[in-house]
């Protein structure tokens, strides 16, 4: 049963991901990305990682894609005419295709591994409580570093985008 759901959700995810790439309308692309992320979230549910699934929907589907849509609408991009491909682009795509085929072949050759059944794993950070406890004990240092990361990211946005009226004043 779980396998069936896995195939349904993964087909859904990959199909929406392809739709992101091939859609000419940027708004439709962004919405397809949303569908793809929801598909990934449902795979997380199958893995009993409920917190991750919820975060995926809140953060990526909710916030990030909404931001994408905002920007798309702000820029008001019109679907332009596609330029014909250059010769060098075709040549390099050909080489990339050969490399991809080689990579897939090597996977296929060594892919049939005798890996045993996946063992039962205790999901340590599966519930929000456990997750929070770990964040504030074992992983307190990375949390603090992330704090500094967000601080410099915020400063960076201000420095790079703010209009400095009297630049002579900045001394």
């Amino acid at each position: 049963m779980a396998a069936l759901f896995f195939y349904i959700f993964s087909t859904f995810t990959v199909a929406s991901a392809l739709a992101v790439v091939f859609n000419k309308n940027t708004v439709a692309s962004a919405l397809a990305l949303l569908m793809s992320l929801v598909g990934v979230a449902s795979i997380f549910v199958l893995l009993d990682a409920f917190l991750l699934a919820a975060l995926m929907v809140f953060v990526y589907a909710g916030a990030v894609v909404a931001l994408f849509l905002f920007i798309v609408m702000l820029l008001d991009v019109q679907g332009g005419v596609r330029k014909p491909f250059k010769k060098i682009t075709i040549a390099s795509s050909g080489i990339a295709l050969v490399l991809l085929a080689l990579g897939l072949y090597s996977f296929w050759k060594s892919g049939a591994q005798t890996t045993a059944e996946l063992g039962q794993i205790v999901p340590v950070g599966a519930t929000l409580k456990n997750y929070g406890e770990l964040l504030f004990t074992t992983y307190l240092l990375p949390v603090q570093i992330v704090g500094f990361l967000l601080l410099i990211a915020m400063l960076g946005v201000i420095v790079l985008s703010k209009k400095f009226e009297g630049l002579e004043d900045i001394k």
């Binding site: 570093i145 992330v146 500094f148 990361l149 410099i152």
Partner: peptide, 17 residues
């Protein structure tokens, strides 16, 4: 790897700016 990645991202984000 968790600390490695978080510290590396701090370095990289700093460099973007």
């Amino acid at each position: 790897f968790i600390l490695l990645f978080v510290a590396l991202e701090t370095v990289t984000v700093g460099f973007y700016i």
